[in-house]
Design a protein around this nucleic acid. Sequence first.
DNA 1: CGCATTTGACCCGCGC
DNA 2: GCGCGGGTCAAATGCG
Length: 353
Amino acid sequence: MSLFLETQMKDHLGLIAKREEGGEESNLVLSLGTLSAKTLTGKEDRAKQTNHIETDEVDGDLSLGLEYFQQAPSPDNHDNLKGPKKDVVAEEIISHQQTNMKRARVSVRARCDTPTMNDGCHWRKYGQKTAKGNPCPRAYYRCTIAPGCPVRKQVQRCAEDMSILITTYEGTHNHALPLSATAVASTTSAAASMLVSGSLTSSASQMQSQFASSHPTVTLDLTAPSSTPQLKISHPAASRYYPSSSFGFAPWNRSSSGAPSQVAASQSALTEAIAGAITSHPSFRSALAAAITSYIGGEHGAPPHGLFVEDGSSRINDVHVHRQPEKEKALAMQAPRSSTVFDSLNLNLNQIQ
DNA sequence: CGCATTTGACCCGCGC
DNA sequence: GCGCGGGTCAAATGCG
């Protein structure tokens, strides 16, 4: 993760959980915008070993706030992303593969000039195909670090923006990874685990059905610029209820194009889904911490590759949702939102391990 | 010469 | 059953 942060993600970080069913696609977007100057500048905050990521609602999307601080490494949490935790991740994925799901995938979107992103692993290209709907060919790679490693990845340029490289990982490494690859691998594995384990399924039946499809995919979206730090959450699955919406993500934010009561219901369901995902899944919390830590570490010129996470020095202390200030609402370009259901989400993540 | 890449053929799942 | 499209195979080719 930190690789992308350092090279491609100076101003944005995000996660998109995506599933498809019956030709319909649903997305759950968690995106982190630009970290504030206060957060990223100077040594004062770092000296205090505290960082605060202020967030807000922008463009009508739900935003989360993240309270973040760093700890000095200790022997107790040295291996918080190694050993048994990885086993749990692998077991969950295998378990779901053995039931009714195809292998989970993790897709990374990042602006990249090179043919592939350097993720620390060694890959051998075994095929190339031009997919329908995208003039750019899709390249297929398999991991060559160890013989028999099942991990594969697909690399393709985005049809809408050729500068965006979409890398999709599939499978779990069956061998030790180079240090430079562990951050990416742990983040993608955790995200996939979160998805296939059902942490994203909420009490809302509509989301349950939307997320019950095969080949679940988590997408780490590292491309979109943002003017303020934010953790956006949106869910285009609701577009089935608002066929007139042309907005690809978060159509419920355009309340003028849909039924307000259904919008509110969807938001409530999503809020519960996110709360459940973040609170119930240690792997996802680790992944989120890895992303944030790497981001901040990269901006400060700290050692790359998520070292703070690997030695257990990062914790997400608090996650909360709050409403958009009136002045920012007035500045928002999108239609005003109609719901206040997000006010109820207030999570405490005191333990990231 | 060994390894990686290219590329057309082939396989398989899915929708009609 | 058939066609389409995604994914993989493997022989040919390129490169250091």
